[in-house]
Nucleic acid binder design. Sequence first.
DNA 1: CATGAGTGTATCCTATCGGAAATTGGAAGG
DNA 2: CCTTCCAATTTCCGATAGGATACACTCATG
Lengths: 252, 252
Amino acid sequence: MAKGSRLQQAADFEAVAAAGGALDSRRSLSDDVYDHMVEFVLTAGLAPDTHINVDSLARAWHVSQTPIREALVRAEEAGLVTREPLRGFRIAPVLSSAEFSQLMHLRILIEPYSAAEASKSTDVTLIPTLEAHMAIMRQARNKPGAQEFSAYMRADREFHDAIAAASGNRFVRLALSTTAVHAHRFRLFASGRVDDASETVAEHSAVVDALRVRNADAASTAMYRHLVSVAERVYADFGPPRLAPVPQRQMS
Amino acid sequence: MAKGSRLQQAADFEAVAAAGGALDSRRSLSDDVYDHMVEFVLTAGLAPDTHINVDSLARAWHVSQTPIREALVRAEEAGLVTREPLRGFRIAPVLSSAEFSQLMHLRILIEPYSAAEASKSTDVTLIPTLEAHMAIMRQARNKPGAQEFSAYMRADREFHDAIAAASGNRFVRLALSTTAVHAHRFRLFASGRVDDASETVAEHSAVVDALRVRNADAASTAMYRHLVSVAERVYADFGPPRLAPVPQRQMS
DNA sequence: CATGAGTGTATCCTATCGGAAATTGGAAGG
DNA sequence: CCTTCCAATTTCCGATAGGATACACTCATG
């Protein structure tokens, strides 16, 4: 392998790594491979159940099998791929409609809380960060391209993750991070284009407004309404099952 | 390496594998190593921040480095170990009191819902399974030994996991599975012995009673009370911070 | 047509090498 | 004589290449 380059000629990847992970000067090759793999699965929209040949993937990316395997193990934990012992790895199946409903139930349990806690955050960069993500989403409004969809979904993920991070509860953030890629892939295969930017941005604005004035109850409610709306929009495209009654309890 | 044995002489391990995983005839060596590692970290009570020497661990368990590394990557995702690139793996730090509080917050958000959903389960083996776990916990009551503590905590984990599984929501179950090992380790280092069996079994009984009569509201409430009690008991030993107000919403 | 042996392929594991980081020893300066 | 800084050594992580084993497929046979 050439001395300077790690993955492929890796020009595009090095740019991503430089932009996203400049702080961590120490990154192992398997980390790079993992990031590359996530991007690959999420944007390329590979067919579910596709066999992943470790050897050919290693040759294609000009690395050996070990970092590929380590990245695949992590991807399995994240739900991106599945593994059958002695039979290898496959691209994970896309969520069924029922499973997406389950996913949204979990988010509805957690995210109103994370929004409420985020309203107490002292991080002054939170609001500007959220607005930056919303600007990207506004920009992608009604653009049918795959590129725009990818940027749109990325901004959406980072919007929710920023709030989870601001909640200060690492377990909440961890639990939600797993859901993000699944939701991304479900919507990628459901429509694959930006079709709800107006509603989503409006609902995000309501959340940000509540966070700006540090109103925990309002933030919680706005987030709850947003998630219910997201689910309803998806089910409008897909028909039943609609969102089952969402159990929520009163502030004690 | 001898032909029949895989880990060490591995007599005890083979017994565990035969008891727990007989259904999966296909298991890779890294799976075995991972299970072994979880058991090792949770029962041996290794000091946090202890360096893990991959090479010596491989020699000690009579396997090579690759399955060790794969198991460590999975253990990192599960929060059992931490990894610093180019500096290796370490035993993960035990949760601080504040982090344990965060963990309990997440459980309180999720588990009342999982109990409510489990009450609708048609699985006839659920109640007997839960009662079996409770029997084990009763048996360990007020026994100070490390062996009893381990069995007690295992039964507690499996009790909650069985309910999560019965909820039918795989994302709920996944989110909770991460919390289990952290809670286990926190209590291992907090007291390390069975000191709340009476209360815990009583509270578990309340949950099972509600599940038996398929009362979703009662199951949710019983689980909520149980988790609050768990947190309160831990804080009684530890002093502040006590459990912050637990945000819960009304059933809509 | 069903069944079983034989061949090919890919996974999984092992053995080994390069290289980065921690450590120990020594020399220079105060 | 003690402290501080630098450098060589050692240790161990990360990566590579190759071999053993299990599975899938093909083809011959009852």
